[in-house]
Design a binder for these strands. Structure first.
Length: 560
DNA sequence: CCTCTGAGCC
């Protein structure tokens, strides 16, 4: 039963031939009016179904009961088939038909299941399609590989990973393995959604069943681990796969180089670079870019420039991406002469500045404290008609806020929206911070309520921005408002929130030595008691505090 | 598979 529709076409054909045959017989011999009636009812029922009148079609099917042994499962299948071809299909009606068949007969056959399944799939009702497939199994039929494979592809297209995993699970019950592109897509999607364990599970199950996927199958897992600061776990997986005979490609090595650089494990990162070269796998521009990026973030500009040199000597052409990264750090460090030189090089190579170049220059200058230059740069970008994005605007908001012009930033955000760019949380948080820095904390809270936050609402940074300002001002009623709001939104504290609170306690509490005797969790609980009734304090602490702590917070206590 | 933007301490 590889193709439900194909079989069905044959089934319908037989049905019509039989109908024609019987009609002739009745006309010639005038026997058995019941049979004649049945054939008429079949036609009527099918016409109703084809015109989306499922109620009438079922009613007609019911009339067939006058004929012994009717309606048959074929009549029901015909109803389902015709209804699915009609204009206005309500799939829940079909589920009702199916449930009715199961309870009162005739029992669904393979064709019933295939027709229903294909219908559900065609109309994108994936949950019901899976339901039908599961029902098929319990009724003793085996869903075909191609049906389930189609279902998996559709689930992936629809973006529901949970459904996709259920379909995969179901497929594995029959020892069906998804095709390479499908399983790779599933693994990639899972990784992107942060479901690394699930992605690894999919990969390992396929591997254990002897289905081979190459480096492109597991590279997304290596990358996801490295992006989640789990480089050593990635390395373990990497070595395990190598032992199993997998041949890693540039992308696999680059993931590790990226991960170790990101975690500032420079020895490991450079070791990976050496390893890949020894394995005859030449690093590409992306490999170099990852190291250079994190070297720059770490302030190691000399090492970054050294690597840029090495990459050129190895015959790997630097692209605008890597130049932008270096430019940013040069601006950050105020190395004006080198900025000029690099800009010349970029120009000679025929690259023209893009969004990222402008962001690198302005953002770097801002961080380097040259706010005036950063401001002029972006004003020129805006007036020249260069393309801009939200990040560029956000840097500009930050610049205005640093100049104590946060109200202008707010005004400018409106003009950004007028050209069709939606502010993100960074935009809102930057402006909130600007207001707080100008001691306009009440206005900030008002904006907090007025902003049209994206689907996820204000995030931890938003809350910490207000919390920090409230703590600095020793404004306990404001702190309380923020904390209630955090609890209401289900946003948990992090180390920055607690650092802000500890600062507040330091201002309002004279005997610091008491703090030494107790752990940070207890400190928080005691602190709450300063401005909250005990019961409230307990309930909020237990729901919002996730128990993080660090020596850095303690530094605040000792030195604050 | 690589580049730009937001919160606390030092």
């Amino acid at each position: 039963m590889a193709n439900g529709r194909g079989c069905w076409t044959v089934g319908i054909g037989i049905l019509f031939q039989r109908g024609h045959f019987w009609k002739q017989k009745v006309e010639k011999q005038g026997i058995d009016s019941h049979e004649f009636n049945y054939i008429e009812l079949q036609h009527r029922m099918q016409n109703y179904a084809l015109s989306s009148c499922i109620g009438k079609a079922l009613e007609t099917l019911n009339f067939m009961k006058n004929v012994p042994g009717k309606p048959t499962v074929y009549d029901y299948n015909a109803l389902i088939h015709c209804y699915l071809k009609s204009k206005d299909v309500l799939l829940e009606e079909l589920v009702k038909v199916y449930v009715g068949m199961k309870r009162f007969g005739p029992l669904p056959n393979a064709l019933t299941f295939n027709t229903l399944f294909n219908g559900m799939l065609l109309f994108g009702n994936l949950k019901d399609a899976l339901f039908i497939a599961e029902e098929m199994l319990t009724s003793g039929f085996v869903p075909s590989f191609s049906s389930l494979s189609k279902l998996l592809k559709k689930s992936l297209e629809s973006g529901s990973l949970v459904d996709s995993l259920r379909v995969l699970d179901f497929m594995l019950e029959f020892d069906y393995s998804p095709t390479d592109p499908t399983s790779n897509l599933l693994i990639t999607r899972l990784c992107k959604a942060g479901m690394i364990c699930e992605a690894y599970f999919v990969f390992s199950v396929l591997l254990s069943k002897g289905y081979f996927c190459g480096a492109y199958g597991y590279n997304p897992i290596l990358w996801a681990l490295c992006k989640a600061n789990q480089s050593y776990i990635a390395l373990t997986l990497f070595c395990l796969l190598k032992k199993k005979g997998f041949v890693h490609n540039v992308c696999s090595y680059t993931a590790l180089v990226y991960g170790f650089s990101r975690e500032r494990l420079w020895e490991e990162a450079f070791c990976c670079l050496k390893e890949m070269e020894a394995a005859g796998c030449k690093p590409n521009a992306i490999t170099y870019t990852t190291v250079v990026k994190f070297l720059c973030d770490d302030g190691q500009i000399e090492e970054a420039l050294g690597l840029l040199d090495k990459m050129q000597k190895e015959g790997c052409d630097p692209d605008l991406v890597i130049y932008n990264i270096i430019l940013r750090e040069l601006c950050h460090q105020n190395r004006i002469v080198e900025i000029g030189e690099l800009v010349q090089v970029i120009d000679q190579k025929g690259f023209s500045p893009n969004l990222f170049t402008h962001a690198a220059l302005a953002g770097g200058m801002l961080k380097g404290g040259r706010i005036g230059i950063a401001h002029k740069l972006l004003v020129d970008v805006f007036s020249s008609g260069c393309s801009v994005d939200v990040a560029i605007y956000n840097i500009f908001f930050n610049i205005l806020c640093c100049l104590n012009r946060s109200k202008e930033a707010l005004f400018f955000m409106r003009s950004m929206m007028e050209i069709g760019l939606r502010p993100n949380n960074v935009s809102y948080n930057t402006i909130l911070n600007g207001f707080c820095e100008e001691h306009l904390i009440d206005e900030a809270l008002e904006l907090f309520d007025r902003f049209e936050w994206a689907a996820n609402g204000p995030d931890l940074v938003s809350f910490n921005t207000i919390l920090s300002a409230a703590c600095k001002q020793g404004n306990s009623s404001m702190i309380r408002r923020v904390l209630y709001r955090m609890e209401y939104e289900g946003v948990k504290f992090n180390i920055i929130s607690t650092t802000c609170l500890i600062q507040y306690f330091c201002y309002s509490w004279e005997d610091f030595r008491v703090l030494e005797a107790i752990g940070i969790h207890d400190l928080t609980v005691i602190g709450w008691k300063l401005f909250l009734p005990t019961e409230e304090a307990r309930s909020i602490v237990s729901t919002t505090y996730d128990g993080q702590s660090s020596t850095k917070s303690w530094n605040v206590v000792y030195t604050g």
